[in-house]
Amino acid sequence: MATSIKNSLILLTFLAFIIIQGFCDCSLNNINIGTVRSGREIKGKPEWEVTVINNCSCSQSKIQLSCKGFQSSESVDPSVFAKQGDSCLLVNGGPLKAFSSVNFSYAWDPPFLLLPSSSLVGHDCS
């Protein structure tokens, strides 16, 4: 009888873990990046406003974007978007909370295709 109860508790714990993890089934597909022209020009280059949105019920941190060749004729706040070789780190690697966004602007022509390349999914699901 004790073995049966113990096995049932192990099974329930395992199922609870799977269910909780299921709510945080996030991936890079949940990171959306929108780029729109601001209408301003900086040193003869069009300015682009970028919004990165975490469309997941969990935070994501250490978000890396592919940004090979990225340049800007205006400075970009490195605490928001920091170039590191062919990758760029978002918000100093800190968490982008569930369903929140971060914005930055840069000026260059043509606009850069920024795509999420990696992140760590948190366990703080909403």
Rank of each mutant, 00 (worst) to 15 (best):
I42A: 00
I42G: 00
S61P: 04
T51K: 08
I53K: 13
E49F: 02
K45R: 07
G69D: 10
K45N: 09
P46G: 04
C58K: 14
S59K: 12
T51E: 09
V50S: 05
S57K: 15
K45E: 08
I42N: 00
L65S: 04
K68F: 11
F70L: 09
Q60L: 15
K68D: 11
S57W: 15
C67N: 06
W48Y: 13
K62F: 05
Q71H: 12
S57N: 15
Q64D: 03
C58W: 12
K45I: 01
S72C: 01
Q64R: 10
I63L: 15
G44T: 05
E49P: 00
S66L: 11
K62G: 04
E47Q: 12
N55Q: 14
S61V: 07
W48T: 09
K45Q: 10
G44F: 01
I42R: 00
Q60V: 13
C67T: 06
L65F: 05
S66E: 12
Q60P: 15
V50G: 05
S61F: 11
V52K: 02
C56Q: 14
P46N: 06
C58T: 14
N55F: 09
E49N: 09
S66A: 13
S59P: 08
V50E: 05
K43G: 00
F70P: 08
Q64N: 07
K43A: 03
Q71L: 12
E47D: 05
I63K: 12
S57H: 15
S61T: 10
S59D: 12
Q71Y: 10
I63D: 10
V50N: 04
G44Q: 07
K43V: 01
I63C: 11
C56Y: 15
C67W: 02
I42K: 00
L65H: 02
N54R: 11
C56H: 14
L65R: 04
S59V: 07
I42D: 00
K45M: 07
S59I: 07
V50D: 05
T51G: 01
K62H: 10
I42M: 00
S57D: 15
S72M: 01
K45P: 02
G44V: 03
G69T: 06
Q71D: 12
Q64H: 06
N54T: 11
K45W: 01
